[in-house]
């Protein structure tokens, strides 16, 4: 038997095995990775809380939860499924991870870049027609053939 034959035979694995592995395509850090990361997060959270000294009532920015910073209004954002997503500063490598995307729809309207998008599939950037995919709890937007990660910053339903 040749290696090509074996590769072809492996292609006939049953559907459930194939789809199970597809579902595996999300990051599962080991405990060795989680523990130091959790310590770093804890330090970062304490530092941020200390620096920002939030008001006791946490009320700010049109009633949005504390932690939603007005400065992010200038960043490219999209509203999808009542969630407000903001482009991330550090873009991960998304090429080749398309199997983890789930198609949601296309950006169909826009608001001014100084405003927050509030309607479904609305952006504050000129990206009408861009395809939007679900990617874990975040979304990926295909802009002119390049994938951009947008993180969930606020849910209008909360």
């Amino acid at each position: 038997m040749t290696r090509e034959d074996l590769f072809e035979v492996l292609g006939d694995l049953e559907d459930d095995l194939v789809l199970e592995a597809r579902m595996d395509k999300r990051r599962r850090p080991s405990w060795r990775a989680i523990v130091p990361a959790a310590c770093l997060c804890a330090v970062a959270v304490v530092a941020v809380l200390w620096l920002r000294s939030p008001p006791m009532d946490s009320g700010n920015l049109d009633g949005e939860p504390w932690g939603y910073n007005k400065s992010c209004e200038a960043a490219p954002m999209v509203c999808v499924g009542r969630g407000l997503y903001r482009i991330t500063g550090e873009q991960p490598e998304l090429e080749g991870r398309e199997a983890e995307f789930f198609y949601l729809g296309e950006i169909s309207s826009r608001v001014d870049s100084s405003q927050k998008p509030r309607e479904d599939f609305q952006a504050n950037d000129d990206i009408i027609g861009a395809k939007v995919y679900k990617f874990d709890e975040n979304i990926v937007v295909d802009i002119d053939g390049k994938y951009w990660l947008y993180e969930l910053v606020y849910n209008y339903m909360d």
Binding site: F7, L10, G11, L13, L17, V18, E20, A21, R22, D24, K25, A99
Partner: peptide
């Protein structure tokens, strides 16, 4: 092991 195997040799 199953997931790693299928991802490598199926996908």
């Amino acid at each position: 092991k199953r997931s790693i195997f299928v991802r490598r040799y199926w996908y």
